[in-house]
């Protein structure tokens, strides 16, 4: 199983900060697509992904137990 954390407006879109799903074997890109569809997440292609508090690219493969976080870069200032 994997914990998936959502930050900022992604959290609002999903309705909670944390979900638990089984994403092991999937790439980050595949997980993004799946979640985009399920939760209608906006613009996931520009969202930063972390696996276990380390930056991960779209083709990285998720292992069982990995903690995933999605952090949308924002532009306000």
């Amino acid at each position: 199983m994997n914990k998936v954390l959502f930050f900022a407006h992604l959290r609002d879109a999903v309705g909670k900060e944390l979900i638990e799903i089984n994403a092991s074997g999937k790439t980050v890109g595949e997980l993004k697509e799946e979640l985009t569809e399920k939760y209608h997440l906006p613009r996931m292609e520009t969202v930063m992904t972390a696996i276990n508090e380390e930056f991960a690219s779209n083709d990285e493969v998720i292992q069982d137990g990995d903690e995933i976080a999605f952090i949308p870069p924002v532009s306000g200032g």
């Binding site: 900022a8 407006h9 906006p42 613009r43 292609e45 520009t46 949308p72 870069p73 924002v74 532009s75 306000g76 200032g77």
Partner: peptide, 9 residues
Amino acid sequence: TIPLQGMTC
């Protein structure tokens, strides 16, 4: 790429 639609204040 530049996010076209970033959240702003």
